[in-house]
């Protein structure tokens, strides 16, 4: 058995990149809204990881990669000279408050009911719901989306998410809570849920 501090082998690095590449691509597409740019950014992040951190323990790779990907995305925004647009996006989410009247349990039951079905007709409905979720995640404010994706898609804990985002753990919790409420609200507006 390998000790937890053992260096990542070629296979471990390959397996890690393979496991994370699709999510990394989607996460970047949400941010930059361009498939080609997202692919360039993901490739850049992979190469940065391989060149500078391939000798790190395999267990450290997920956190390092997500930080590199965030930095590569920021670099892209700088290069594209859309920093002002980004700052506008960053300021958007600070004003929204979670809707206290919202019943998350009902939405959870509705989503679980819709995504857990298996008939042909339900499969179409399921695909539509997945498409809607994809759309609504893309519409989230940048920081809320980043917190949501890192916390629930990459399944980082609050501390790890805060480390990647460069903010406090309290901010992560707030961003995540707002993101889930915002998604729940927008999905309900699209006809999903009670």
């Amino acid at each position: 058995m390998r000790p937890p501090t053992a260096l990542a082998s070629d296979k471990e690095l390959s397996d890690f990149l393979k496991s994370v590449e699709k999510r990394a691509f989607k996460r970047t597409v949400y941010a930059v809204r361009s498939d080609d740019s997202a692919l360039d950014i993901v490739q850049d992040a992979m190469i940065r990881l391989a060149e500078k951190y391939a000798d790190r323990p395999a267990a450290e790779l997920p956190l390092i990669f997500q930080r590199i990907l965030s930095n590569a995305t920021m670099d892209w925004f700088r290069r594209e000279k859309v920093r002002n647009a980004l700052m506008t996006n960053l300021s958007e989410f600070e004003s929204s408050e979670p809707d206290g009247d919202f019943d998350l349990l009902e939405m959870l039951q509705a989503v679980e009911g819709s995504l857990g079905t298996e008939s042909a007709a339900d499969a179409v409905s399921r695909a539509q719901i997945l498409h809607l979720i994809d759309e609504q995640v893309a519409e989230l404010p940048a920081r809320q989306r980043e917190a949501f994706l890192l916390r629930y898609w990459e399944e980082f804990d609050v501390a790890e998410t805060a480390a990647v985002m460069g903010c406090s753990q309290g901010s992560v919790k707030t961003h995540c809570s707002r993101a889930v409420h915002a998604l729940s609200k927008s999905l309900r507006a699209k006809g999903i849920g009670p």
């Binding site: 699709k22 999510r23 691509f25 989607k26 498939d35 692919l39 998350l104 349990l105 939405m107 959870l108 989503v111 679980e112 995504l115 719901i129 997945l130 498409h131 979720i133 994809d134 995640v137 949501f148 994706l149 916390r151 629930y152 898609w153 399944e155 995540c176 809570s177 993101a179 889930v180 409420h181 998604l183 729940s184």
Partner: peptide, 24 residues
């Protein structure tokens, strides 16, 4: 509840990500 819903919605994203175009 937030965490459960968040994980369920993220599960939906995983299903979408598995259907990326071949060129991607």
């Amino acid at each position: 509840l937030e965490a459960r819903l968040g994980l369920r919605l993220a599960g939906g994203l995983t299903a979408r990500a598995e259907c990326l175009p071949h060129d991607v």
